[in-house]
Design a protein around this nucleic acid. Structure first.
Lengths: 367, 367
DNA sequence: TGCGGGAACCGTAACGGTTCAGTAAGTGTG
DNA sequence: CACACTTACTGAACCGTTACGGTTCCCGCA
């Protein structure tokens, strides 16, 4: 492709102005304020631009001057590619993309490896604002975002006093699920949860670790579960909670196995995500147990695959969360100075993976 | 959050330098070239920066000077949110994200509504290069990208002489599928394809329209199909081809219905994507026909859902495509000046949705 | 003929950095 | 002690654009 006629250095607005014998302002106006110059001159400018291979005002220089980048930065705690592997994250992204599109903004995915403390990518992101999706309280990338003098919206976690936030009532949502299980008669349960801190821990999570978890959402869900079961006299200290660092079905499977090994008498496995629950489901069946006759399994999120297997779970509006986050960020008009919070509704989905526990006798001798 | 101690305007590198009584260069070096100043001074600079609430060098200003943005732009022909709804696109994105991550670059999704001719978003994208994913030959956004003086890689379509490209051998891939069907004995077939041009056309696509399609990939696949079937004496003019603008299962279903209405004697429906094929499958079964006993259905792409229903299809390495595109763009080292082309392998997946057609007698009277 | 007013265009000063060619002081060497 | 070399820092140019506050010119109108 021929990109410029004769100059070695690419044409700039200034060189174009020189060629035309007009001021830079006029050339700039030709692109940005057509009403500020005569149609003839404008045509002449544009024609000459084409002839010189001038691609129009440089976006970076323009951004510098106008103080806007026309893009929203997205920070998430996982590897970038993870965002496309987790259905809930994909849903969130879709919603966020919709909001960006409406406001004619780009969406910049910021590479932020959770293993690395390297925060340079946050510092070098040319964006008008950040959306932070579900990161731990002490995430260094989050700290870097907070230093940037641009608006920020956090989705899910953490919950910071001065920052706009979009989320759900995690406690209330999982409590509804817990009460459902309690009504069905479950008293001996096990829990599989996602990572509670930035440090890897694949195994039991002590009550202390649960309480001090740096992932706000997981903490809230575990606390709510403990409260719900405390109401019917279950001692939370005795409830095994298995933590998994990687959010995969394999993790869910191995955690479920561990749980059943730890306490063979549990009648239900509550997972804090559908992905984990799907893994648990597979593992439990692999071991020859029937669901829900032998054991109950529940998830959280309401992803498509969960619906397919009729998982009992809590549906949260992932797409809406993304859209709300984007709108919050881009609707500066609504910004009153006070931090805003959007809490979206969730819905208990009673599938076919939860049922009444059979008595021990039944379990041994059949119904 | 308190962002600066006392100044109304946010701190800049210059104001920080003034406060410290050192040159701007020194402050810049404190961030970018720690070896260029004494550790004590550097610490003093960084401490003062924190005190003044200086967030570090402005990314946009830096980009302007260094001529690099640290981001890759992605242009796709559909609404941004579509990218997250189509499994093949999601796979591509995942691969591209991986490559970007490796090179420590961000990934900027550019809003480019196919309905609008507005290319401002392309002009205002501050990126070091573009990846263009599957757009029509005459896409105005593509034209805008080509004007920008940055490297570009196109995935799938169009195929331009001077531009790096990643893709598959669409013709060869679908020919293998076609020969499989031919071996099974299919001679009367129907085709469902994706949009052939930017103008909406939901219905039969004439051979002329097929040949002049502005979507290179669809054109290649149709051409290859016609060649393969010509080899066994099938007159392509008689083969009904139904085009659908929207790439959804609903489109696939209605197109399949149309096809069977147009020619009830067809024994196979070849779809140019899995999404369309899944829709066709549902529709055909809804009409009470059995697959593959009564009719054969095939797809293209090899998405997870296709595997789940054992669709006969062609698997293409979508993730690898994304990764290859990213690498091609970011590995300037390899750039020899000549345009590069990466063709990835595909694989015929023989599922359970393709079988031998039964004779007309069999169809009416049973085997 | 004088004058108000809009249309069309211009000059300068940012915007916030990075880079490169210095300069001055300190260090080691024969 | 002269000389080269290193360390630590500086000044000015430059990146490409837009914002702001003009100036010039021409037309209509009294």
């Amino acid at each position: 492709m021929v990109r410029s006629t004769n100059s070695r250095r690419p044409a700039t607005l200034a060189s174009l102005a020189a060629e035309l014998g007009v001021s830079r302002t006029t050339v700039s106006n030709a692109y940005n304020r057509p009403d500020q110059l005569s149609p003839e001159l404008r045509k002449r400018v544009l024609d000459t631009a084409r002839r010189l291979g001038y691609p129009g005002p440089d976006p970076v220089a323009r951004s510098l001057r106008t103080r806007k980048a026309g893009a929203v930065g997205l920070l998430l705690t996982e590897n970038l590619s993870y965002a496309f592997r987790d259905p809930a994250a994909v849903g969130f992204l879709e919603g966020l993309a919709l909001a960006c599109e409406d406001a004619d903004h780009g969406l910049l995915l910021i590479p932020a490896n959770p293993e690395h403390e390297d925060v340079a990518s946050v510092h070098s992101a040319g964006v008008d604002g950040f959306v932070v999706y579900s990161v731990p309280d002490d995430d260094p990338h989050l700290a870097a975002v907070m230093e940037r003098p641009v608006p920020t919206v956090i989705c899910d976690q953490p919950s910071l006093p001065e920052i706009d936030r979009v989320g759900i009532d995690d406690g209330a949502a999982i409590k509804e699920l817990a009460r459902h299980l309690i009504e069905l008669g479950h008293r001996k349960i096990g829990v599989v949860c996602m990572r509670l801190a930035r440090t890897r821990n694949d195994g039991p999570a002590s009550p202390e670790r649960q309480a001090s978890a740096s992932f706000h959402v997981q903490r809230a869900r575990l606390t709510a579960l403990s409260e719900a079961f405390a109401e019917v006299g279950v001692d939370w200290e005795q409830v095994p909670v298995i933590e998994r660092f990687d959010h995969t079905t394999e993790s869910g499977g191995s955690a479920a196995a561990r749980l059943m090994e730890l306490d063979p008498e549990i009648t239900a496995i509550i997972c804090t995500s559908d992905i984990l629950a799907l893994g648990a489901l597979t593992e439990v069946r692999r071991q020859g147990r029937r669901v829900p006759q032998d054991i109950t399994i529940t998830g959280f999120d309401g992803i498509d695959d969960a619906e397919r297997v009729e998982l009992t779970t809590v549906r949260q509006p992932v797409l809406e969360k993304g859209r709300a986050a984007g709108r919050l960020l881009l609707d500066a008009s609504e910004s009153t100075g006070k931090p805003r919070e959007v809490l979206l509704d969730t819905q208990l989905i009673t599938g076919s993976t939860a049922g009444s526990p059979r008595s021990v006798e039944e379990r041994w001798f059949g119904p």
